[in-house]
Simulated assay, not measured.
Amino acid sequence: MLKCTSVCGKLFILFIFAFVSFYIPTGKADARLTSYTSKVSVWDVKASGLNIRSGPGSVYPVIAQVSNGTDIVNNCPSTNCGLTSGGDFEWNRVYYPDGNIGYYANAASGWAAYYNTVGPTVFNYRDAHVAKTSRATSMYTSDCSNLSGMIRHFPEQNYYLQSFDPELKASPCNPNAWRLQDPQGDSDAQGYFYSGFVNGWNLKAE
């Protein structure tokens, strides 16, 4: 009986050690954002000039135009929006930058042709994977409806942040809340990269 107790005790200790080793993260990852959270795409415009229209088709009026390198955000609060066919193109509803507003907003939203369905396929905008600061900005823990709970500040321009997701994403409830992590900075108290929401108006997606 004593022998069994000793063996069982050792096996129990080994089990606990294996369990803890499996669940304790061994590298720096994320401590705040989660991959299963709903999100929408942030795209980088590749066309030299892209018309934003009031509806999904070339028959709708042009309400704005954005140039190469502009960042647009998918306007899909339900996160279940697919492409919409219209004419010879597939369309997405997007937020586009309007300097008179100073942030991504419903007042600056329209439809942008994603790619053509006739002839060789040309994409007007693409997924992005990193973003760099264009002015001083901060990282926050909360996204809806306003950014709050500052955890980091980035005072300089051209500081690169990495997308937390495989492609750059934003919060569906706030197109200004881009999901990023800071692999260049120090770690948080748990040894993870800092990650959170950064104001996309202060960033340039690449």
Rank of each mutant, 00 (worst) to 15 (best):
Val198Gly: 01
Tyr36His: 13
Phe123Gly: 01
Thr34Asp: 05
Pro155Ala: 15
Tyr159Pro: 04
Ile13Asn: 10
Asp165Ile: 01
Asp165Cys: 02
Tyr114Ser: 13
Ser163Lys: 06
Asn199Phe: 02
Lys46Met: 13
Ser134Arg: 15
Pro56Asp: 15
Met1Trp: 04
Met139Asn: 06
Asp186Leu: 02
Thr79Asp: 01
Val94Gln: 07
Ile72Ser: 03
Tyr36Cys: 03
Pro183Trp: 11
Asn202Lys: 12
Gly185Trp: 09
Ile72Pro: 01
Leu33Asn: 10
Val94Asn: 07
Ala136Asn: 08
Asn202Ala: 13
Arg53Ile: 07
Thr141Glu: 13
Asp44Ala: 12
Leu11Ile: 11
Phe164His: 15
Phe197Gly: 03
Asn51Phe: 07
Thr79Trp: 02
Lys28Cys: 10
Met139Ser: 11
Asp165Pro: 05
Pro175Ala: 08
Arg135Cys: 03
Ala205Val: 05
Asn74Tyr: 02
Gly49Asp: 04
Gly110Trp: 05
Ser134Trp: 00
Ala170Trp: 02
Ile13Leu: 13
Ile101Ser: 05
Leu33Cys: 10
Gln157Thr: 15
Ser163Asp: 05
Val122Thr: 14
Glu90Thr: 10
Met150Arg: 11
Ser145Phe: 08
Phe17Tyr: 08
Val118Asn: 11
Arg152Lys: 15
Ser145Asn: 10
Asp71Met: 15
Glu167His: 13
Tyr23Ser: 11
